[in-house]
């Protein structure tokens, strides 16, 4: 379990990193927190020729409120997001999800941007970003562009980011007064990759679900916005009939993967359980607010 040989360059600037990416293309990998990349290298499942270490690029760091959006720099460590008052105040969904992200040691090194860039299907941050309608900013030597989270996650570890681009930051709309969010996941042990998970953001007026975004992860190849289930609850009061309709619709929204953690049937079942629990909780939170 030793990595095959690779070259290593510590990028001095974003432009330096981008130039290296241009030069080496798919043979290069960006090294941020390394929490997924290093095990992959050590198990020789991946053999890049070059690692471009971006850990010292200050331009990619930081968490700040910018108008009605929170900017989370790609290099923000999970632990920084976890402890951020800006996140706690403006992005309660992410604050609720963060303790589920791995373990202390991983959170100390792993980065928000790394999680979004890798797009592990069981990762929490991609699902939360999608639920909140985030925008991801990527940069190449040609310049910057913004990609809406809705069109960013393409498939299993597959995103809209091009090989010559670096994810530099996420811009996440603050959760507005009058909206509620709920994060739930089921992992065998605390901090493990989840078997099923749901990030939910909604506006509930007097018990009626005015708007909702339900994003399912872990069971799917990518974080998945459940459009049919959302349609089934939108404009409805949360009662048995709405619930049954939403749970029925989920079968068409989701296409769970069977793997070591369980069968597709179990994952659909668990996502339905989470749906019921999450919306119960959202309604209760809206009532309490």
């Amino acid at each position: 379990m030793k990595a095959p040989k690779f070259s290593y360059v510590r990028a001095e600037s974003v432009d330096h990193a981008l130039a290296l990416l241009d030069q080496h293309g798919d043979e290069a990998r960006i090294l941020a927190g390394g929490q997924s990349l290093m095990p992959t290298l050590n198990m020789r499942l991946s053999r890049p020729q070059l690692l471009i270490d971006i850990n010292r690029l200050d331009a990619l760091k930081g968490i700040a409120l910018q108008g009605d959006r929170v900017r989370i720099g790609a290099l923000a460590r999970h632990v920084e997001v976890l402890n951020s008052p800006v996140v706690a105040k403006n992005l309660p969904l992410i604050a609720e999800a963060m303790p589920h992200v791995a373990h202390v040691a991983v959170r100390n090194r792993g980065t928000f941007g790394g999680s979004v860039a890798l797009a592990d299907p069981a990762a929490e941050m991609p699902a939360c970003a999608l639920a909140l309608g985030a925008t991801f900013v990527v940069q190449s030597s040609k310049g910057r562009r913004e990609i809406a989270a809705d069109s960013y996650f393409k498939g299993l570890y597959e995103t809209a980011r091009a090989v010559n681009e670096i994810l530099v930051e996420a811009l996440i709309p603050v959760e507005k007064p009058g909206t509620v969010s709920v994060f739930l996941e089921l992992a065998r042990r605390h901090g493990d990759f989840a078997m099923a998970g749901l990030a939910c953001h909604a506006r509930i007026d007097k018990g009626v679900i005015a708007e909702a975004r339900l994003v399912y992860f872990a069971s799917e190849v990518r974080p998945t916005l459940a459009t049919r289930a959302i349609a089934a609850i939108k404009g409805k009061p949360w009662n048995d009939a709405t619930r049954d309709a939403a749970l029925a619709a989920l079968a068409d929204d989701l296409d769970p993967m069977t793997n070591l953690h369980g069968s597709a049937a179990m994952k659909l079942h668990l996502q339905r359980v989470l749906t019921r629990r999450a919306i119960d909780q959202a309604v209760a939170r809206a009532r309490a607010a």
Partner: peptide, 28 residues
Amino acid sequence: LYEHCIYDENAQLQNGTLADYIIPMAVE
């Protein structure tokens, strides 16, 4: 509760890492 060396029908071990072969931790 947790530990299981899972083999497929070709007797290939499916979970040879501590991410996939889970052991009890203090929290649980």
